[in-house]
Design a protein around this nucleic acid. Sequence first.
DNA 1: CAATAATGGAGAGTGATAGTGTCTAATGTC
DNA 2: GACATTAGACACTATCACTCTCCATTATTG
Lengths: 220, 220
Amino acid sequence: MRISELARRGGVPVGTVKYYLREGLLPPGEATSATQASYDEGHVERLTLVRALLGPGGLSIARAREVLAAVDDPSISVHDALGAACAATSEPSPQTTDLAAAMAHVGRWGWWVTEDSPALQDLARALAAAQEVDLDVTEAHLDAYAEAAARVGRADVAAVPTSSQADAVRYVVLGTVLMDPVLLALRRLAQEDASGRRFGAQDLSGLMVPLAADRTAAGT
Amino acid sequence: MRISELARRGGVPVGTVKYYLREGLLPPGEATSATQASYDEGHVERLTLVRALLGPGGLSIARAREVLAAVDDPSISVHDALGAACAATSEPSPQTTDLAAAMAHVGRWGWWVTEDSPALQDLARALAAAQEVDLDVTEAHLDAYAEAAARVGRADVAAVPTSSQADAVRYVVLGTVLMDPVLLALRRLAQEDASGRRFGAQDLSGLMVPLAADRTAAGT
DNA sequence: CAATAATGGAGAGTGATAGTGTCTAATGTC
DNA sequence: GACATTAGACACTATCACTCTCCATTATTG
């Protein structure tokens, strides 16, 4: 297919496809002449993948390129692919963070992580930010988070397919990036549920009901 | 104090403080003359709060303004404050999303949420994005996420202080925004742990060890 | 009391990011 | 052979979160 069809299939303007090609997010099509290249189903798939990483995944072009490099690397291990995905979703450390508190927590939970994991930096920064504004995060509260995270991490790793290395790598990378928003949305919903049970019952009695599945989409 | 001291205390340039004043993120200081205003400790606290929302919280100026409006509203309920924080961290719905699948899941878990919750839209979009790229998210996998999220949501709500309405609202809003990155970082670390146990043992035996607390900060 | 520095306020400018638009020569298609 | 399409390159746009510059007006200080 030509570029216009690829763009249509992916639901993006042609210019955007060209942009992704330029940025190396999409591999070039097979050149059939000086001004023509043909693209295949693989390109369509790749394009939807790129859109997922950039949109819901929230990655920048540069980060998406790193993630895709991991997906494309046939020799990468699943564990290293996870590391690449993790790195792609972490902020670049602006200054040296004090990892002591974060490391103490992780040690308390007995988790095996490398000391230079970007996620450890992220945790340290996030906890420091909470402390900055005097947000009281108790050890028990954090333990609840850790148990929840452990549950999620175990589910993620258990779900990794064993069919092939490439499948596993793809699954790990995509799962890492695309399940973040799922988890956050679920936290919001769970908070709403818990809050409704604790705070909302009296003043919102009629408005908040357990969702029944008999309505498909709520318009205005 | 004058603006330069406020800026110094908050660790930001004076120009940035002026910008936040212009944007309504900081309340104006008490004008002592045509070209002078005095700021107090409340302003310093507010400034660190703004920095936390914009930096680690990942909010835009506009979203931060909404969140701060909730924090400032003395009559808002805790539940509504949570809703405001939730809305501030959701994408504005670009198109109508099909909520059916998301609602089915939420109903399955028996959660009480409103049908027009932004988080429900977020969940629907995130699941749709995963499906788009053929990422297989099983019901069991999602159930694990839901249980983890429920745990987190319960911990969050249980930790809400009862000292005063204002404290509770502040805690809820900040906790919602600032604990997101904590949860994501913990997921990464838990994944690394789980992955190391499953995939990493053979090829990274020496590099991955349970963290001991005898080192404070890991340099290069 | 005069020189210097800082302030408030407003508008313009900056750099990064993610595209879009425009152009050209070459090509495909009817 | 006429018209649309393409690849490739470069330039342009929009948004965001600042950052700079300017000015008249104080505050401070020697």
